[in-house]
Design a protein around this nucleic acid. Structure first.
Lengths: 336, 336
DNA sequence: GGTTTTTGTGTAAGCGCTTTACGTTTGGGA
DNA sequence: TCCCAAACGTAAAGCGCTTACACAAAAACC
């Protein structure tokens, strides 16, 4: 049987509260007893039960992470960074994938609470503000990553989507493109909205016409990206450049282009968003907007932990700058 | 304050044991009281505390997952499948990334036990058999995924690495290649060993010479793969084909080839292993050995859960067949 | 109608730990 | 030598839940 604090106490010839004190390093204890107890703990290979101590009001040192899909490289990288920072801070990660499914998300949230996680990081497109609001109401530590809900007072860490969209579109425009398509996600993320705004603004600033047929909503997958690209590239208003809302979608565009015999970047310029590993391995390497994933993961975790430890009273939004990474998928428009 | 079982009991005018009974659906309860209690739970938005119930000997319905790195697409996909199956079965995943670092792994194991997970799935190359043996000794549910430790009686789910290596090498040989390099992982995974054995056996069966300078060990990263490939492709015994132990390494080979001006598959054939998303997006699409990731994830979870629920007494190894996916990175040797 | 069963519910003892409120020891100053 | 703070330990309550065990009340039996 697993040794308990009683076993340690008995073997060390002290009371359990004394053992508890050395475990938590609280109260006064003589060096001698402390040493003795430590020694016994070692010899018994004693490990305090987090479950029991959580029951007495202490933290579980576990935080919940809700994301759409770890198999999506962007979220995998995010998850990794969060876990890393969590480990440094002494927290573990309970991971839930929801595929942005409302019901799965509600289940996840409920489960995480039952399991007494100390806080929750959400990376999915929650539509259920009610549930979120409830959490906030009861002061439960929550933070949003890579997503914002402007209507709520909540801790958020995102990239500056407007700026990213601006950089991407500007880059394309500066290369002489005038017919630029924008493939955006369809799940109502604010990020998509901001990027779209930027896209429109750049067009406007450059006195380029906005053609709504050139912006299409798609799923967050390669296949969906491919389908959307195929369609738009076959249409009469075929664009010479495509701004894809995510690297994954950009890859779909690559496939569509290949199928249609279009060369990138000669016949079609493509810029992505995220700068996941995918962007570096496709051919040609993808010009994309880099999200500071490392920084983002680190900062949400920090934000959340400060909230958990109560060393912070006001919520905050952390908006990090994106960076345009020019690789070889974009080029001056032919004949320009 | 969060409602407890007492609150429910009081409001429903029954004792807490009655409430507990309806929660767990145990013992006898009249339909009437049951309904009443359920109703009160609903109205109070009561959720039983997993922590408290775990303390009384029930499960936490949480399982630990130890992998090298979720940011590695292979493990991300594995993690995703495991989580999916876990959700179906009512288990959550506590995820730990170790980068195959011995110390991190030990910490993770220790933490997971402190947190009373019901079982642990390990996907890292554990060298610490002692620790593992301890777990097994105390009948703690553990299962290995995508990795085997032949010396231990333990639940394992892997792909048939020997067969995979055999398929890969045979494919290359059947295309006329005689100078085939093998880039394998360097962390002592048994999978690498089996693949190497298969590689040698195929060469032997085909009366091809085995040149040990053509097998090189490398890290599990693109960069490492690239470095290794660069080196081997510059050597006097330049191979005409490379069997890369992982898709990630294969991508490194692509990059090396590009840098050297070698065309794939014309000047160099490449086959990978894993069939992650990466294999489909590189150009040319990578011929690779597919691991049945879905099936693997599902099966470890099943195995582990059966162990947890005690409905299974003997350990077992589940060896799933790989599949050679021929795409465009391999070709008959020039002039053959 | 009385005696068994059966059924429904309550009581109370923990699970392993933290923590508060008290006892005991020391030992230094007067 | 005596007194009073430290300094150190201990006992006990309680966290929210499960689970024997006990015990009425209701149903079943002859």
């Amino acid at each position: 049987m697993k040794p308990t604090i009683y076993d340690v106490a008995e073997k060390a010839g002290v009371s359990i509260s004394t053992v508890s004190r050395v475990i938590n390093n609280t109260g006064r204890i003589s060096e001698k007893t402390k040493k003795k107890v430590l020694q016994v703990m070692e010899s018994l290979r004693y490990q305090p039960s987090v479950v029991a101590s959580a029951l007495t009001g202490k933290r579980t040192r576990t935080i919940g992470l809700i994301i759409p899909d770890v198999a999506n490289p962007f979220f995998a990288e995010i998850a990794r960074r969060i876990e890393d920072r969590g480990r440094e801070l002494g927290f573990n990660l309970l991971m839930c994938n929801t595929d942005n499914n409302q019901h799965t998300e509600e289940m996840a949230l409920s489960l995480l609470k039952q399991k007494s996680v100390d806080g929750i990081i959400i990376g999915t497109t929650t539509k259920n503000y009610t549930l979120l609001n409830e959490l906030l109401q009861e002061q439960f530590p929550v933070a949003l990553i890579a997503q914002d809900i402007p209507e709520l007072v909540i801790d958020v860490v995102t990239v500056d989507d407007f700026l990213g969209g601006y950089q991407a579109t500007s880059h394309l425009v500066s290369l002489g493109h005038t017919k630029i398509a924008f493939l955006m996600g369809n799940s109502g993320r604010t990020s998509d909205k901001y990027r779209l705004q930027a896209y429109r603004q750049v067009l406007e600033e450059n006195r380029l016409p906005f053609d709504e047929r050139l912006v299409v909503e798609t799923d967050y997958s390669m296949e969906a990206g491919k389908r959307a690209a195929l369609e738009i590239l076959a249409s009469p208003q075929r664009p010479t450049a495509i701004f894809a809302g995510f690297d994954l979608i950009a890859i779909g565009v690559y496939q569509a282009a290949k199928e249609l015999g279009l060369r990138i970047p000669d016949d079609l310029s493509v810029v992505g968003f995220d700068n996941t590993i995918l962007a570096t391995i496709v051919d040609p390497p993808l010009t994309t907007i880099a999200q500071p994933i490392d920084e983002m993961g680190r900062q949400v975790m920090d934000l959340l932990v400060r909230e958990i430890e109560g060393s912070k009273s006001t919520k905050q939004r952390v908006i990090l700058p994106p960076e345009l990474i020019i690789r070889n998928s974009t080029k001056e428009i032919a004949g320009a």
